[in-house]
Design a protein around this nucleic acid. Structure first.
Lengths: 343, 343
DNA sequence: ATTAGCACTCAATTTAACCGAGTGCTAAAT
DNA sequence: ATTTAGCACTCGGTTAAATTGAGTGCTAAT
């Protein structure tokens, strides 16, 4: 078990390294006003903390930096979320004050605000297609054989897809189709729509429609939803101002990874609700060796449906970021849930 | 007037510098198999080309690199678009083979292909809101006071906006509104819809509708279109592999600029049709000092409506890029025009 | 007009010297 | 048994000098 003084020193080092990105020496700690013991004492403690694996030295005669294990200990035992500052609150409130009406927009804006406030990279995932259900479907004919399918989901978002209708489908037949679809498919998760189309709708269609084969084919396109959600980013270039990324190659491997939506998606899939902190190699991805990711889920009606998070250097301000994320997801959840229950 | 040999040497230097990103020396040119004169001769020619302003030296004892004036001359007089290679054709065809149904998608995909093929950054602008006209409008009610407005444009693209309807508007009244709108607003450019709403529709509305004030207010949101088009990018990280951008600060100022959609939009507004080449400071933007931008317009029904282009280091492969852009915009134009004329 | 020859230039690389922040360890002080 | 002063030692970073080599400009010979 760590002594009180060891804890203090560990925290001091994490603090100092977070601010300067440079290894912290014994003298600088000893000089603090709230510290009464000498550099030598600090050094002894440091040596102990190092053998315990919480600290490490970039080279033999340098000060100490926190190891990933040190960060992990800090996050698990020491850290308490910083209260969100007044000015941050203003910025976030601002976000929800703009009257935005689409889920996507809120998520995207949230990511922007978050990266602006933190100077790190923000990542956000919209409501999961697994949890998003069809609420209402409408097909608007445009030209003779072209139409738009408008899908309204229970998360309050709206999507449209252009589709081709079979030649010579009567307007009133189309109406019938739409009625059947709404009747059978409401409440079905988006990604299962196509499956449900065949399981639930096909037979009914057959009974009522002569062109049922052609129609089914058209609908397949209308109802297809990609599993992979879009990933939203904010402040991708923020990385470039961090001293640990003055090396272009590192930046590149990271930014290239961010282009791969599927991978990022996987990393962020909402698991347990609440805040998750992944430090360095805990992310299980090589390019993420020197970064940490803090994610938080937001919920709709009590169910976690999406994720929003921050990607920053391992020496990021955990306490502040966690505070911000808690605050933001709380508001997000409230807002989205209220939308969801309107009607 | 430049002699034949001078032209040859200019081209050789541009060529060499494009490939290696290093200043080209006299000896390396003289050693080429198709060159029979000595390094000294080459040096004399180089000196002349330098006083003419087509070449410059990074430092007094180095080889030559093309000046921006040199590139300009090359582009204007020497360059002939390289024939697009077979494998490039395959990739582009592939793009148009996927059945895509939305203008936006094609543009975005085009940008992707282009950056993949060139390893530069691609930039694309969707059809201009000035030239895009309303073709058809539909309002789909969702819940009691929420609805979706679906706008179909003459470029074949579809947009939706969520709007709030006045309390207690009867379905049949809504139908009337939609009919009036379609009647009066078809063919109006998107950005002028709101103006037209008041000029053309207000009075009619007043005659037929009790709640006309409230309705008008709702419609304002439905019909508002941002002037600034979205800008699509491909391969933003490609920049990071170019040797001239191993300096993080340069990269940052550039990437930050790319986040500013309005500015990029301005740079790319389709002016004359065809290919435009802007070299270095010709772009009138500080961050673009070391890059060139080649843009091409695509058309719908003979009218240039959008732009797609490439952003690369000044030493980029002009000839190849221009070839590619010509090929791609030609296909784009054909495809979009055919969509546009379907009906 | 062309080219061989040579002195010269200058960025880039290597080498050496030095500085200073910081450590570990020992022995004295508390 | 802690704590601390003291000191030798380490090592990255910086600066300065030396070396290298690709390339030039100019002159005189072809």
């Amino acid at each position: 078990m760590l002594t009180k003084r060891q804890l203090f020193i560990l925290e001091a080092i994490i603090d100092g390294y977070t601010k300067t990105a440079e290894a912290v020496g014994s003298r600088s700690i000893s000089k603090r006003e709230d510290v009464s013991y000498s550099p030598a004492t600090v050094r002894n403690e440091m040596a102990d903390l190092e053998t315990l694996g919480f600290l490490e030295k970039p080279h033999s005669s340098s000060g100490r930096i926190p190891s990933n294990k040190g960060y992990r200990y800090y996050v698990d035992h020491l850290l308490l979320p910083r209260r969100v500052s007044e000015s941050d609150i203003v910025d976030i409130r601002q976000l929800f004050a703009d009257r935005i009406t689409e889920t996507e927009d809120v998520i995207r804006k949230s990511a922007e605000v978050l990266s602006d406030l933190t100077s790190y990279i923000s990542v956000a995932l919209g409501p999961d297609a697994f949890n998003t259900k069809l609420k209402h479907l409408q097909i608007v004919p445009l030209y003779e054989s072209t139409a738009v399918a408008v899908l309204v989901t229970d998360t309050g978002s709206v999507e449209h897809r252009q589709i081709t209708l079979p030649e010579g489908l009567e307007a009133q037949e189309l109406e019938k189709v739409v009625r059947i679809l709404n009747d059978r498919l409401q409440g079905v998760p988006l990604i299962e729509l196509n499956k449900a189309l065949y399981q639930e709708v096909a037979s009914v269609m057959e009974q009522h429609l002569s062109q049922h084969m052609d129609v089914m084919h058209s609908l397949e396109n209308a109802l297809h939803t990609d599993k992979s959600e879009k990933v939203y980013y904010g402040g991708k270039t923020n990385l470039l101002s961090q001293p640990e990324f003055k090396d272009v190659d590192k930046v590149r491997s990271l930014l290239e990874l961010l282009e791969k939506d599927e991978q990022m998606h996987q990393l962020m899939v909402p698991t347990q609700s609440g805040i998750t902190v992944k430090i360095g190699e805990e992310n299980d991805i090589e390019a993420f060796e020197d970064v940490s990711m803090i994610t938080a889920t937001y919920q709709i009606g009590g169910k976690p449906v999406g994720t929003i998070g921050i990607l920053g250097p391992t020496r990021m301000e955990y306490s502040r970021v966690i505070g911000l994320l808690q605050y933001l997801t709380h508001d997000l959840t409230k807002m989205l849930t209220s939308w969801h229950h309107r009607e």
